[in-house]
Amino acid sequence: MRNTILLVLGTIIAFAVPFMFPAYQNQFAMLWLMILFALTWDLMGGQMGYNSFGNVVFFGVGMYITAVIQRDLYFDIEEYAHVAGRIDALTPDQYLTGIFLGMGVSGIVTVLVAIILGAGILGLRGHYFAICTLGLTIAAGEIASGIDYIGAGSGIVTPVFPTELMAKGMFFYFVFMVLAVGTFLTNKWMLAGRFGLAVNAIRDDEDKAEAMGIRTKRYKTMAWATSAFFLSMAGGAAGNLFGFIDPINVAFAGATFGVWMVLMAILGGKGTIWGPVIGAAIFHITQELFWTYLFGWQRVALGAMIVGIVVFFPQGIMGFLRQHWPHLFGHKVDEQTTVEQGATKESEA
C-alpha cells in the first residue's frame, strides 16, 4: 500500500517537474541521463564487480550512429554541411523518424559490439579489466577523430530541434525519463532472479562460480550488452540534446561522463538497486550548485568532492546503511535452529 502511494506520487512529480520548472528542463533531462549512467555502470561495476571505464564507449558509439542516420536519411554529406545551421532544416516528422530510428539502430549495433568486445576482454579480471576498458575509451576517441565520414576531429553538428513540435527541453526530459526508468526497471527485473545472484557470485568469487558450473561468460556478456543497449540509446538522444558531437570531449568523454558514472554509483552504494539513483541525484545537484555558486572553482570543488566520496564513502550511502544496520536488510540470526522450529514460528505469526 505504502509502495503504491509512493509510486503514484513519484510518477506525478516526474511528470509535473518540466511544467513546474520550465527553465530547468535541460537540467532535469541531464539528471535522468546521470541516473541512467549510474544504473548501467552499476550493473557491471557494482553488481558484477567488473569496474568498467569503457562503458562510455557505447554512449559515444550510439551518439555517432544516431547522428549519422539522422544526417544520411535526408541529406547527402555535402549538402548537410550547408543546411546544418538552418533552423528549419528538418520537419518534425523527419526529425522524429531520424532520432528514434537512429536510437533503435544504435541499440542493436552496440549490443553486437558489446558481445564482440566482450568475447575478448570479459576474460580479464580485476585491475586488468579496468585498465583495458580505460584504453578502449581513449582508443575509441582517437579512432573517431580520424574518420572523415563522421567529421573526424571537428565532430558533427546534430540536426536542429524543430521547436514547432514542443520545447526542446521538454522533449528530451521525457526521452531521458523513459530511458532511465526503462533501465531501472530492466535492472530490477534482471537482478530479481537467477541473473542477479549469478553476477553477484561472479563479483564475490569468480573462480568459485566457475567451479560450481555457472556459465559465467554468458552472464558477463549479458550484463555488458544490457549496459551497452541503454547507454547507446541515451547517447543518441544526448547528441541531439547537446547539439554538437566532439569525439573526445562529448562522445567518448572518459574523463567526465566515464568517471562520473563510476563515482555516482559508488556514492549511492554500488551493488544496490536504489544506490545509483540516489548517488546520481546527489552528485548532479551538487555539481550544478558548484557551477552556480563556486564558478571558477567548480572543478576544484568537484575534485574535492570526488576525493571525499572515495575516502569517506567507499561503500556508498546504501552500503553505509547496510553496514551499520544490517538487520534492516534482513541479515540477522534466527533463534530457531531447525526447519521444524522455523515452520512453527512462521505458522504462529
Partner: peptide, 22 residues
C-alpha cells in the same frame, strides 16, 4: 572447469571459497 562441474564432478577449495557478500 565449468563443463566438468556440470557433468557432476565438483570440488571444494583448500582456502574456503564462498560468496561473501551474499
Amino acid at each position: 572447469v565449468p563443463e566438468i562441474a556440470r557433468l557432476g564432478m565438483l570440488r571444494t577449495f583448500q582456502q574456503t571459497r564462498i560468496y561473501g557478500k551474499m
